[in-house]
Simulated assay, not measured.
Amino acid sequence: MYALLILDMQVGLVHGPDKPWRGPALIDTLNGLMGSAREKGAPIFLARHIGPAGSPIEPGSPLTELVQELELLGNEVIFDKKRPNAFAQTDLATLLSERGCEGVVVTGMKTQYCVDSTCRAARDCGFDAVLIANVHTCSDTQELKAEAIVAHHNATLAGPFCRVIQAEEWTF
């Protein structure tokens, strides 16, 4: 079984000053993936990135809240993380193992940080990783447009770190 992992779809990142590339379309596709996961009984995990006390993303900050556009039913596992890698200093690996998951389907934000490091870490933690090519995103940087960042990571991560699949091709 594969679990759906949604990274950092938080108010501060999605609705902040640097809008993510294809944000509304990504949320629509995430909601569809959550529906598919529920139909097959696959667990759904949502990570929120938090920072130290006194930072804009300190625990409890409104910026760390999950965006309202996600269709959550209340049976999802929501956890906080302090590192880009969702496995680092969290119980994610244990929670996946307890649910009999052999793999994790990685989605969310930001491509070049948390999505990248989580995909790279999954196999080291004993899990197959699947990156949904059209369901991760980021904002433009001074060096690169978000579309180029996403395309680069889809190409770089495919093979040695994870399988890269379009949302329409994935089934739980």
Rank of each mutant, 00 (worst) to 15 (best):
Ser97Asp: 12
Arg99Gly: 06
Glu102Cys: 10
Phe127Ile: 00
Met109Tyr: 14
Asp124Glu: 13
Cys119Ala: 05
Asn134Phe: 01
Ala129Met: 04
Tyr113Asp: 12
Cys114Leu: 00
Cys125Met: 14
Gln112Val: 00
Gly108Ile: 02
Cys138Arg: 01
Asn134Lys: 12
Val104Tyr: 09
Ile132His: 01
Thr111Ser: 14
Cys125Arg: 13
Gln112Ala: 11
Val115Phe: 01
Lys110Pro: 08
Gly103Thr: 09
Gly108Ser: 09
Gly126Ala: 00
Gly126Asn: 01
Tyr113Ser: 07
Arg99Thr: 08
Arg120Thr: 05
Val106Ile: 15
Ile132Trp: 02
Thr107Trp: 05
Ile132Thr: 05
Gly126Cys: 01
Val130Ile: 14
Glu98Phe: 03
Val105Glu: 09
Cys114Ser: 15
Val115Cys: 03
Ala121Gln: 10
Arg120Ala: 02
Cys101Trp: 06
Tyr113Thr: 11
Cys119Glu: 00
Ala122Ile: 05
Asn134His: 11
Gln112Phe: 07
Val106Gln: 11
Arg99Tyr: 03
Arg123Leu: 09
Lys110Thr: 15
Cys114Lys: 07
Val130Asp: 01
Thr118Cys: 01
Ala121Arg: 08
Ile132Tyr: 02
Cys138Ala: 00
Glu102Pro: 09
Cys125Asn: 14
Met109Pro: 06
Val104Cys: 09
Ser97Leu: 11
Leu96Trp: 02
Glu98Asn: 15
His136Ser: 07
Ala129Ser: 12
Val115Arg: 12
Val105Trp: 09
Cys119Arg: 07
Glu98Met: 12
Thr107Asn: 12
Met109Ile: 14
Val104Asn: 11
Leu131Trp: 02
Gly103Asn: 11
Gly103Pro: 11
Val135Arg: 04
Met109Arg: 11
Ser97Glu: 13
Ser139Ile: 00
Ser117Gly: 00
Met109Gly: 05
Ala133Met: 01
Ala122Tyr: 03
Glu98Pro: 08
Gly100Asn: 10
Cys101Arg: 10
Gln112Asp: 15
Ile132Asn: 00
Lys110Phe: 12
Val106Trp: 04
Arg123Thr: 10
Val130Tyr: 02
Gly103Leu: 06
Cys119Leu: 05
Ser117Met: 14
Asp116Gln: 12
Glu98Cys: 09
Arg99Gln: 14
Cys101Pro: 11
Val115Asn: 09
Thr137Tyr: 02
Asp116Gly: 00
Arg99Met: 06
Met109Val: 13
Gly103Cys: 08
Val106Lys: 10
Thr118Arg: 08
Val105Tyr: 08
Val106Leu: 05
Gly103Arg: 11
Ala133Glu: 11
Ser139Trp: 08
Ser117Asn: 13
Gly108Arg: 10
Val105Met: 12
Asp116Tyr: 05
Glu102Gln: 15
Cys125Gly: 00
His136Arg: 09
Tyr113Ile: 10
